[in-house]
Protein backbone atom coordinates (compact mmCIF):
# COMPACT_ATOMS: atom_id res chain seq x y z
CA UNK A 1 0.00 0.00 0.00
CA UNK A 2 2.86 2.32 0.91
CA UNK A 3 4.67 1.52 -2.31
CA UNK A 4 1.63 2.36 -4.39
CA UNK A 5 1.07 5.70 -2.69
CA UNK A 6 4.26 7.37 -3.95
CA UNK A 7 6.62 9.42 -1.85
CA UNK A 8 5.07 12.16 0.20
CA UNK A 9 7.45 15.07 0.87
CA UNK A 10 6.58 14.82 4.55
CA UNK A 11 8.33 11.44 4.71
CA UNK A 12 11.58 13.24 4.07
CA UNK A 13 10.83 15.59 6.95
CA UNK A 14 10.11 12.70 9.30
CA UNK A 15 13.37 11.03 8.25
CA UNK A 16 15.25 14.30 8.79
CA UNK A 17 13.84 14.71 12.29
CA UNK A 18 14.83 11.11 13.06
CA UNK A 19 18.38 11.82 11.89
CA UNK A 20 18.48 15.02 13.94
CA UNK A 21 17.22 13.20 17.05
CA UNK A 22 19.83 10.44 16.67
CA UNK A 23 22.56 13.07 16.29
CA UNK A 24 21.36 15.01 19.33
CA UNK A 25 21.16 11.88 21.44
CA UNK A 26 24.66 10.88 20.38
CA UNK A 27 25.96 14.33 21.21
CA UNK A 28 24.56 13.97 24.73
CA UNK A 29 25.63 10.37 25.27
CA UNK A 30 29.13 10.13 23.81
CA UNK A 31 32.26 11.37 25.57
CA UNK A 32 34.83 11.26 22.77
CA UNK A 33 35.10 14.81 21.33
CA UNK A 34 35.62 13.48 17.80
CA UNK A 35 32.46 11.36 17.90
CA UNK A 36 30.53 14.29 19.38
CA UNK A 37 31.70 16.32 16.42
CA UNK A 38 30.44 13.68 13.99
CA UNK A 39 27.07 13.82 15.74
CA UNK A 40 26.97 17.57 15.09
CA UNK A 41 27.61 16.83 11.39
CA UNK A 42 24.72 14.38 11.51
CA UNK A 43 22.42 17.09 12.85
CA UNK A 44 23.61 19.55 10.19
CA UNK A 45 22.84 16.97 7.51
CA UNK A 46 19.35 16.46 8.86
CA UNK A 47 18.78 20.21 8.58
CA UNK A 48 20.09 20.36 5.00
CA UNK A 49 17.74 17.53 4.09
CA UNK A 50 14.89 19.53 5.59
CA UNK A 51 15.88 22.60 3.58
CA UNK A 52 16.00 20.66 0.31
CA UNK A 53 12.64 19.05 1.06
CA UNK A 54 10.96 22.38 1.76
CA UNK A 55 12.65 23.77 -1.34
CA UNK A 56 10.82 21.13 -3.32
CA UNK A 57 7.53 21.43 -1.43
CA UNK A 58 7.37 25.20 -1.96
CA UNK A 59 9.03 25.09 -5.40
CA UNK A 60 11.60 27.68 -4.30
CA UNK A 61 15.30 27.53 -5.08
CA UNK A 62 16.11 29.61 -1.97
CA UNK A 63 16.14 26.50 0.21
CA UNK A 64 18.89 24.97 -1.88
CA UNK A 65 20.89 28.20 -1.73
CA UNK A 66 20.75 28.10 2.07
CA UNK A 67 22.18 24.57 1.98
CA UNK A 68 25.28 25.98 0.28
CA UNK A 69 25.77 28.31 3.26
CA UNK A 70 25.26 25.44 5.67
CA UNK A 71 27.99 23.50 3.87
CA UNK A 72 30.40 26.44 4.10
CA UNK A 73 29.72 26.96 7.80
CA UNK A 74 30.09 23.22 8.45
CA UNK A 75 33.45 23.18 6.70
CA UNK A 76 34.72 26.17 8.69
CA UNK A 77 33.39 24.63 11.91
CA UNK A 78 35.14 21.32 11.25
CA UNK A 79 38.45 23.04 10.50
CA UNK A 80 38.49 25.09 13.71
CA UNK A 81 36.97 22.35 15.86
CA UNK A 82 39.42 19.71 14.75
CA UNK A 83 42.24 22.21 15.31
CA UNK A 84 41.12 22.64 18.91
CA UNK A 85 40.75 18.87 19.36
CA UNK A 86 44.26 18.28 17.97
CA UNK A 87 45.68 20.92 20.36
CA UNK A 88 43.98 19.23 23.31
CA UNK A 89 44.73 15.65 22.34
CA UNK A 90 48.41 16.36 21.76
CA UNK A 91 48.87 17.00 25.47
CA UNK A 92 46.30 14.56 26.82
CA UNK A 93 45.58 11.73 24.36
CA UNK A 94 42.95 10.23 26.64
CA UNK A 95 41.02 13.47 27.25
CA UNK A 96 37.25 13.21 27.10
CA UNK A 97 34.67 15.97 27.03
CA UNK A 98 34.35 15.65 30.82
CA UNK A 99 37.97 16.81 31.28
CA UNK A 100 37.40 20.09 29.44
CA UNK A 101 35.94 21.99 32.37
CA UNK A 102 38.35 24.94 32.49
CA UNK A 103 35.64 27.47 31.74
CA UNK A 104 33.88 26.52 34.98
CA UNK A 105 36.42 28.74 36.78
Amino acid sequence: MLLAAGVEPSWYLVLASALFAIGATGLLVRRNPLVMFMCVELMLNAVTLTFVTFSRMLDDIGGQAVVVFVLVVAAAEVVVGLGIIVAIMRRRPDATADDLALLKG
Binding site: S10, L13, V14, F20, R56, L58, D59, D60
Partner: peptide
Protein backbone atom coordinates in the same frame (compact mmCIF):
# COMPACT_ATOMS: atom_id res chain seq x y z
CA UNK B 1 8.62 18.22 14.69
CA UNK B 2 6.59 15.19 13.63
CA UNK B 3 3.69 16.33 15.82
CA UNK B 4 3.98 19.85 14.44
CA UNK B 5 3.98 18.39 10.93
CA UNK B 6 0.92 16.30 11.72
CA UNK B 7 -1.02 19.37 12.85
CA UNK B 8 -0.41 20.99 9.46
CA UNK B 9 -1.89 17.99 7.70
CA UNK B 10 1.53 16.64 6.58
CA UNK B 11 2.05 19.56 4.27
CA UNK B 12 4.15 22.70 4.12
CA UNK B 13 2.78 25.99 5.28
CA UNK B 14 1.43 28.28 2.62
CA UNK B 15 4.48 30.41 1.93
CA UNK B 16 4.75 31.72 -1.59
CA UNK B 17 7.82 30.85 -3.65
CA UNK B 18 9.55 33.97 -4.89
CA UNK B 19 13.21 33.16 -5.51
CA UNK B 20 12.92 30.94 -8.54
CA UNK B 21 11.42 27.60 -9.40
CA UNK B 22 12.94 24.22 -8.64
CA UNK B 23 10.69 22.22 -10.94
Amino acid sequence: PVAALATTGWDATGAIANLGSVS
